[in-house]
Simulated scan of single mutants.
Amino acid sequence: AYVEQDLHEIYQGEVRYARDAFEGLRLMDALMAVKRGIPGAALPELKQRRVKAAAAVRNTEQLPAEGPRRSDVATDNPVPTPPFLGTRVVKGIPLKEYASWLDEGALFKGQWGLKRDVIDSVGRPRLRLWLDRLRTENLLEAAVVYGYFPCVSKDDDLIVLDEQGNERTRFTFPRQDRGRRLCLADFFRSEESGQVDVVGLQVVTVGSRIGEATAGLFETDAYRDYLELHGLSVQLAEALAEYWHARVRAELGIGVHDPAGLDGMLRTQYQGCRYSLGYPACPDLEDRGKIADLLRPERIGVELSEEFQLHPEQSTDAIVVHHPEASYFNAGGRP
């Protein structure tokens, strides 16, 4: 609605919103059909803004001026002992190690825009074709840099320490303004407790070759192949991140709580949580600079742009939290 109402009113040309590249192609097809004067051709109706009554009421609620500095998150959970402190680099991870972590639902429906009735007849054969091509053309350079760091929390801050107990850097996270008033810092021992906690950090990438291959497809107007390979590369990076997160949980000794099947894994039915920068609990992308300083991801070919974007695009970073109550939440309101 922001694009198709607010921007539409001030932009002199035609402006439309597409939720993904496939919808963008459909919009362009409709636009060209209108331009060519094809009978019956028309653009979809503009999206209308919908504000739920309950949401409108909540917006008028008086927010509390102050609340507890810390939520009710447990503070007596065991702190695991990491296998090492500092960082390690792992390169050359075979595709077979993390391909089983691929979220096919997100790939077929989200990235490729396939309907359920063609997933078996179209989606899976295309996936097998692409995986074979990735192997034969050696387009993947899967690598990880990760580490464990001593830390404590203070109010909304997570303070990363050096091995002598001095502050190395700190992250400041938003706190919910109602409900449990959760904040990511709450999942770590407080500075006042006198105990030291541990936080995991990771950056994973499937390398730059696959990005170069997708760019080549785009330049030759092979748009279907481009969209499929690009979507697959993004999901493979996510699969690698899930795979390595499981490795971290195992190293911290909390992997015993992992579910048996992939579906349970993708529903985060395990102890611990992986928070990627830019999401509600840790929205500040500038924090990527702090992670980069700690992990030095250039060792696996990952650079940080001036806009705090990871390059190659098929890379992800994360803060790994071991606390049994850690879960995804919206820091702007109720869980």
Rank of each mutant, 00 (worst) to 15 (best):
R124H: 15
P82R: 09
S276F: 05
K96F: 03
Y98R: 09
P80L: 04
L184P: 05
Q235M: 13
N77H: 08
E23S: 09
I119T: 02
G40K: 08
L304G: 03
D162A: 00
L139I: 14
V196M: 03
L217N: 02
D132H: 05
S315M: 08
D117A: 01
R224L: 14
A106C: 00
H323T: 05
S153H: 02
A239C: 04
E286P: 00
V3T: 13
I291F: 02
L140T: 02
R49V: 08
A318K: 01
A30L: 11
F84S: 13
F108N: 02
L129F: 02
Y2L: 15
D29V: 14
V302P: 05
K115N: 09
L182P: 13
V15S: 10
A42E: 06
E228C: 09
R70Y: 15
S193P: 00
D103V: 08
K52Q: 13
W130K: 00
S100H: 08
E137C: 10
V34G: 10
P78W: 07
A213W: 13
Y98G: 06
Y148S: 02
I210S: 06
L232N: 02
P125G: 14
Y275H: 14
L129A: 15
D293N: 04
S100G: 10
T316H: 07
I210K: 05
F84A: 14
R288P: 09
R128Q: 15
G123R: 01
R124G: 08
V118E: 06
P335C: 00
L43E: 01
R50F: 15
I291R: 01
A30E: 08
L294D: 07
G105A: 06
D156F: 05
G165F: 04
R247T: 05
D263P: 00
A143R: 11
D6M: 04
P68E: 14
I10Q: 14
T316I: 04
R168F: 09
V122M: 12
G207V: 13
F218K: 09
Q48H: 04
P44W: 01
G200K: 10
R116M: 11
A55C: 04
R249A: 10
L217Q: 08
P324T: 12
V51I: 12
H323Q: 10
P125M: 10
R299Y: 00
A222Y: 00
A281K: 06
R49C: 10
Q164N: 11
Y226P: 05
A18N: 11
I119D: 03
D284L: 09
R19D: 00
V90I: 14
D197M: 11
A18Q: 06
E303K: 15
A42S: 06
S305G: 11
Q202P: 07
K52H: 13
A215W: 04
R296V: 12
T87M: 09
Q12V: 03
V152E: 04
Y148L: 01
P312S: 02
D156L: 04
G301C: 14
D284T: 12
P335Y: 06
P44H: 01
D225Y: 07
A331I: 01
G333K: 00
G211M: 03
R180L: 13
F22V: 14
V256K: 08
L102K: 00
F108K: 02
L310V: 12
N166C: 09
G261E: 15
A1W: 00
P78H: 11
R69E: 05
V144E: 06
D120S: 06
F173Y: 07
L140A: 10
